[in-house]
């Protein structure tokens, strides 16, 4: 049985049409002891069928340890979004980006392919000024209508800076991690484990938090 019905399939096809360059999705999974790995694999299999510019590479978290290490994958299911040259920009989805989160997933695919809204010069300057290693984790739930905005902002920052990595974390899939960061409202953004905020913030304001790290 497929995850997407015909209507969703058509919508996704349409949404992916403007892709410029190829994008490769790398999935880290395993067959046992991972409840959502199978669905995530199905999801990526189906979505990569919907555009000839999308490819899927599947790695086994247990046996392909070197690959997991290379991309900094520490839990599964994990999706790493790579550009047409298979370069890593530090953009990951931990958990299946279903529900409302499909929007942040499509958005970063388009942006990674080269279709992106230009950022104002002052913001680009601030992003280029970041020299510390920054790790952003955005905790979300799939029923939250404005969570994709928080994820997209974090991913865009990662795309523009080699020093920034950004993860979407589906809170129900990674419960211990959500508990560790006291996540009880989403979206909750945690930066290097020290700075945090609940809700969505525009890019400039997220930079305010990053600059405090």
């Amino acid at each position: 049985m497929s995850l997407f019905d015909d209507k969703v399939k058509k919508q996704l096809q349409e949404a992916l049409k403007p892709m410029v360059n190829n994008v490769n999705l790398a999935l880290f999974t395993q067959t046992l002891e991972c409840n959502t790995c199978r669905d995530t694999h199905l999801f990526l299999g189906e979505i990569s069928e919907l555009s000839d510019k999308l490819t899927l590479t599947v790695w086994n978290f247990q046996t392909d340890k070197d690959k997991a290490e290379q991309y900094g994958v520490d839990k599964i299911p994990a999706i790493v979004v790579l550009d047409s040259e298979n370069r890593d920009h530090g953009i990951k989805f931990y958990g299946l980006p279903g529900g409302y989160e499909i929007n942040s997933f499509i958005r970063i695919i388009l942006e990674m392919s080269g279709l992106k809204e230009q950022l104002p010069d002052d913001l680009m300057k601030r992003i280029q000024g970041i020299k510390k290693d920054i790790h952003i984790q955005v905790f979300i739930s799939l029923t939250c209508p404005y969570c994709p905005d928080a994820v997209s902002t974090a991913h865009r920052l990662a795309l523009e800076s080699e020093h920034i990595k950004a993860d979407m974390v589906e809170s129900s899939t990674f419960v211990p991690l959500a508990i560790k960061f006291n996540v009880s409202s989403v979206p909750k953004t945690v930066i290097n484990g020290t700075q945090e905020f609940v809700g969505t913030n525009p890019l400039g304001k997220v930079l305010d938090f990053i600059e405090k790290v």
Binding site: L96, G98, N103, I106, L115
Partner: peptide, 19 residues
């Protein structure tokens, strides 16, 4: 599983400027 897709194309023709 539900997918609440709501994305219109990424707008590349925005002309708004900073205040």
């Amino acid at each position: 599983m539900e997918f609440n897709l709501s994305l219109s194309a990424v707008a590349t023709d925005h002309r708004a400027v900073p205040m």
